[in-house]
Amino acid sequence: MGLQAYLILAATVFCIGLFGVVTRRNTIGILLGIELMLNAVNINLVAFSHFSGTITGMVFTLFTICITVSEAAIGLALVILLFRVRRTVMADHLDLLKG
């Protein structure tokens, strides 16, 4: 399969993740959508690396995977903290910054 097929696959997964981020009301569901989007980006990077004969994209993917893990850990800690303060994990009810 050519590079195009991999890029279209990654774009599809990215858009599905975006759909999840936009439509989910649960904060944990939104985080799952973000994971899907980051995953699609990783597919892009590895595909470019494979088809260009260089290794830079794979190094980049290694970094993004580690950063995603940090992001998930912090994000879920925030969800637990928010739940403790507001007793809800629904994004609609988190209007603390509304004046």
Binding site: G2, L7, F51
Partner: peptide, 18 residues
């Protein structure tokens, strides 16, 4: 938008050897 842009471009179909 993404797919239409991708389809317009000439992208490599065979990987370069690593």
């Amino acid at each position: 938008v993404i797919v239409s842009i991708l389809l317009q471009r000439q992208l490599p179909s065979t990987p370069l050897p690593q």
